[in-house]
Design a binder for these strands. Sequence first.
RNA 1: GCUGGGUUCGUAUAACGGUCAGUACACAAGAUUCUCAAUCUUGUAAUAUGGGUUCGAUUCCCGUACCCAGUACCA
Length: 580
Amino acid sequence: MSERRTRVRFAPSPTGPLHMGGVRTALYNYLYAKQRGGDFILRIEDTDSHRFVPGAEEYIVEALDWCGIVPDEGLEKTPDGKWKVAEEASPRNPHAPYRQSQRKPIYREFAEKLIANGYAYYAFDTPEELDSRRKEAEAKGETFIYNHATRTGLRNALSLPAEETERLLATTTDWTIRFKMPENEVVAMDDLIRGHIEVNTSTLDDKVLWKRADELPTYHLANIVDDHLMEITEVIRGEEWLPSLPLHYMLYKAFGWTDSMPRFAHLPLLLKPDGKGKLSKRDGDKLGFPVFPLRWVAPTGEVSRGYREDGYFPQAFVNMLAFLGWNPGDEREIMSMEELIEAFSLDHVSKSGARFNVEKAHWYNREYLRLTPSDDLAGLLVPVLEAHGLKVVDCPACAITAGAEFNGTGADFKNHIFTRDYVRSVVEFTSERASFVEDFWKIASYLFVGPKDFEAFGIKAGAAVEQKADPRAKVWDDTATAPFLAKDVDKFWKEDIWPLAVEAVGYLTAVYDGEFSTSGVETALEEFIKAREWPMGKVMNCIRLALAGSASGLGIADIVSRIGPEETVARMAYARERLG
RNA sequence: GCUGGGUUCGUAUAACGGUCAGUACACAAGAUUCUCAAUCUUGUAAUAUGGGUUCGAUUCCCGUACCCAGUACCA
């Protein structure tokens, strides 16, 4: 029994998109199985016909696929090569179908068996009757529980004459089968994460196991039966299931399956960052970050964003998720799926709920971005550039026909055409400042498109200069700038610094000898400015403003050597015209 | 309410009776720099609480507080 092949399952309910807590549960199951060379099974628990949401199942399959969490069992390929939940038995899927709604006939037999052995009974109370009993009890400040104490006073096979039971079974269709929870028995359980737990059965109720109305089992029955049939060895699921663990133990016992009962591990919940309750599907993106792996468009049309669409690398998402409630026991934090598989252990899963932290998620993505080769990043950046109306071509030659005029840099600013090599060089120059592929545009759009407007940068807003928060504060704070401080800002830029910047760039183009390297530009500019004892920072900032339209950004030499002399001069001229 | 689970810096966590309570993110300061980042250095910051057990408790036991889950013919 202890030598059984490890088989674990992820059994989501298709009632909506899978949220990140669900993905983490799937991930832990996957890691656990892979480490032991076992099987990871996907099973769809759609026993609630009322809560079925179209598209949810496909979403689950796609989300797991995006994360690289591949089930060994439960999926089959469609003719067009996509994965879908398996319906036909095959060597890969010996227990098909894996959708509980398609396993209907299996469950009733097991429920009847329980009745035959006295572990369950037919109940005829309607939902309305039970509801009013609950309301009654609530009015008295009590809680109504369907159990040993109350069942004799309710309408079921235990309280009704046998003939009446027979009659109701034959004539009505909304009866259920309930588990007969014994009175005052101690259930001793062991959880792989929480240790030993004991519960007295008197505090438990007679859960519904099977519903005649839709001829479907409830979660509890379906879950136990399928886990047994599919030879599951460990059940790793969310903490919200802990309260029903005693029932599950009792069911295994009632079926006589105690010897092959799986071991249980209840994972800590993923909590909302604001500290109120568990992260739920309904949180959507109201919290400022996605709670879903993929974008989800609800049947109502409501859109929830996803990590994939927000630009996260799946590896970063998985890595981040793995560390929400688990750690490898050493100080590693960046780990590939292979490393996670190797290091995973339920011993290092924490007991308390984990609060998600956006900053840490950003950090993870940045780390993965840095691990990604520039050429791959350039490829990912292409669609972003195209979305901004730019064209990217594979080589200069292929663009000539499109009318491109390259000046040696691989960039045609006039026609907005750039070579793939140019894009890659931009990535190389800026990847240290990016966390997401989209960041490249925010950081370095001026390496593709020159600034149009300078007013947004406060050139005329003298008052803003006083504030420390102003990114240009350092420019004026310097004591060397003291003489300029007395004058107004407009004058400072236009009369004192601006001409110097123009002259500096003029010099630069004059000495240009076809070799416009970063270090060459840097040296030439610095020598020129220092020789004249000009305030270096002021002049440089002024040039940056003209070239990038911003008071912050890449080094001047980097910008100039990227965009080339012609564009540099053109931008200076344009800025001069606009700024005076 | 009841039943069960949980509680180490702001956050995620390490330390499975003996540590100056460690690390990462975030934050702050400094270095660097033509700006902004990045980088490097340094720093602020935690064992919920009261009792035990013990030579010694973050760690074991009990109480209290607080948080969470469950309490459906939902999963």
